[in-house]
Every structure is written in C-alpha cells, then in structure tokens.
C-alpha cells in the first residue's frame, strides 16, 4: 500500500498537466467563491449575504465544487490513467512485477487523495467565508449541514471512478474526455427521456449529480429559516414544481456507492483482460 502510494506520488507530483489542472481548480474555485460573495442583492426579507452564513454556506459551496468535480477532477483521472495506456508506461509497471490489481489500486489511492484535496478546499473556503459572513457565530451553526461535505466527498469519488472507467474503455484520451462529458450532458439525459418516468431518477448521472442538488436559493437567502432540523426544506419547492422531484438523500448515497462499485468492477475487469 505504501509502495503504491509512493509510486503514484512520484508519477503525479512531477506531472505538469496534473499540477496545472490542480492549480487551475484551486484558483477558479476560490475566484468563484470570491466573486459570488461580492454579489449583494437585498430586498426586504431576502439577502444574498445570508447564503454565505453558516450553515447555508455548505450546500452552496458543495454545489459550486461539484461542477469542479465533474470538469477538473474527472478529467485529471482520465489523463493520468489514459496516459499510462497510451504512453504504454503501464508496461513498465507490469513487466517489473506490479500486478494489474495493484496498478488499478494505485489509481484508487489517487482518487481518494484527490477527493480529500477537493474536500479540504471546500471545507476551508466554506469555513473562512462562513466566519466572515456569520454575525452570530455558534459551533452548532458551524457544524449544521456539514454532513453534506461527506456527501460531496462521495460524489467526487463517484465522478472520478466513472472517469476511470472511460479511460480504461477508450484508447484515446481526447475521445475519453469527450465521451465522459457527453455522457453527462447529452447521452444519459437523452436516453432517460425514452424511459418511463419511474426509472429516470435512478440513472448514474442523475443520482450522482443529485447528491449536491442546486441549492434552494430562495430559502437560503431568506431571513426566515426554512430548513428544519432534519435537513429537509419546509419550503417545498418540489411540490410547487420549481424543482424536479428528487429521490431521498440516503437512497442516493446508497445508489452512488453501488454505482462506484460497478464502475470499479468494470474497470478492474477491463484492465485484467486488456493487452497493454
């Protein structure tokens, strides 16, 4: 395990593409956070500033960050894994005695590390912003809704595992990235339309992206708290029809874990059978 970690670190920390993407991720995320906090729209009863107070800041920032999961973190994994196959460096690993399982496990370690990095970034950005904007700070408010950070962590892993699968199936990196993104924005959504309404919410992209749903800006920005203690909004936008009916968070989490397992098993099978 330690050996695999060392190997992955040598490979990734010296890779300039990896470094550039991570730095871009860092800068753009903080820029988005900064710019959005500068927006100051207030009408009586509502203020955008409220969105940046504890605990409202957590669902908002995890939603921001989820876009970076999809775009930056997933693509990093495609590049790092795809390069192993297209530069045939996977051969260097295997002929010197790394098993194919260990090879894939190394990528798994990388996914966990990158997810942890994403989590840290959201946590720090959320904490700092929250401290600045919250007028009456209390630890209870600080920790309220922080469980969504864990959900964000699972989502990052899920996106990267799907990216891993694409990079093992498709030989060309450019094509993997394209198919990965197209799958999210077009292929699955269009495919879903042809299926009965009942099964539509259970598709991988729907489930995984649904983990960090679009925040209910109205309730977050409102003076009144519409969030009850069980984390469910009392301002039922779903029943009004503003937001589509979603499946419960716990179900989504379990489904996501199942999808992660499926992505990993499929990648494992492909790497096992692949001629490198």
């Amino acid at each position: 395990m330690k050996k695999l970690l060392q190997i992955e670190l040598i490979k990734t920390l010296n890779n300039s593409t990896f470094k550039v993407i991570l730095v871009l991720h860092f800068i753009l995320f903080l820029l988005l956070v900064y710019v959005s906090t500068r927006i100051d729209l207030s009408v009586p009863g509502f203020s955008t500033q409220k969105m940046f107070m504890f605990p409202n800041v957590w669902p908002l920032f995890t939603w921001y960050a989820s876009w970076f999961n999809l775009l930056f973190l997933g693509i990093i994994i495609i590049i790092l894994t795809g390069n192993e196959f297209s530069f045939k460096t996977s051969r260097l690993m295997i002929t010197n005695g790394l098993s194919r399982n260990e090879f894939l496990l190394g990528k798994g370690i990388l996914i966990l590390l990158i997810s942890a990095w994403g989590l840290l970034l959201v946590f720090l950005a959320g904490s700092v912003t929250g401290f600045i904007f919250t007028e009456d700070f209390s630890l209870i408010k600080f920790f309220e809704n922080t469980s969504i950070l864990l959900v964000y962590f699972v989502q990052a892993i899920a996106y990267m595992c799907l990216a891993l699968l694409f990079s093992t199936i498709i030989k060309s990196n450019a094509l993997s990235i394209m198919m990965y993104l197209l799958y999210f924005i077009m292929i699955e959504p269009i495919f879903r339309l042809f299926l009965p309404k009942l099964v539509r919410p259970y598709f991988p992209v729907k489930v995984i992206s649904g983990l960090t749903p679009v925040p209910e800006f109205l309730s977050l920005a409102s003076d009144k708290s519409f969030i009850s203690t069980n984390g469910q909004s009392q301002l039922d936008l779903e029943s009004i029809g503003i937001l589509p009916k979603a499946i419960p968070l716990n179900t989504s989490l379990i489904l996501t874990l199942i999808y992660i397992s499926l992505f990993v098993i499929a990648s494992w099978y492909i790497v096992k059978k692949k001629d490198l």
């Binding site: 040598i10 490979k11 460096t89 010197n96 005695g97 790394l98």
Partner: peptide, 30 residues
Amino acid sequence: YQRIGSLIETPHFYPYLSLYQNLQLVSKIK
C-alpha cells in the same frame, strides 16, 4: 516478474520524469 529484467520492443518510460525518477519507480516496484 520481480526476478526478471525486461526490455520489450521500445523502452516505455514516463516522458516527463527524469531518468533517475523513472528508475526510482522500477526500484520501488521490485
């Protein structure tokens, strides 16, 4: 395979890593 040293077809190394770093990877594996 840890007991075998091999060079198959053309050598495949990480292009951005130095010679030392590339061989470091081999050392770690073996």
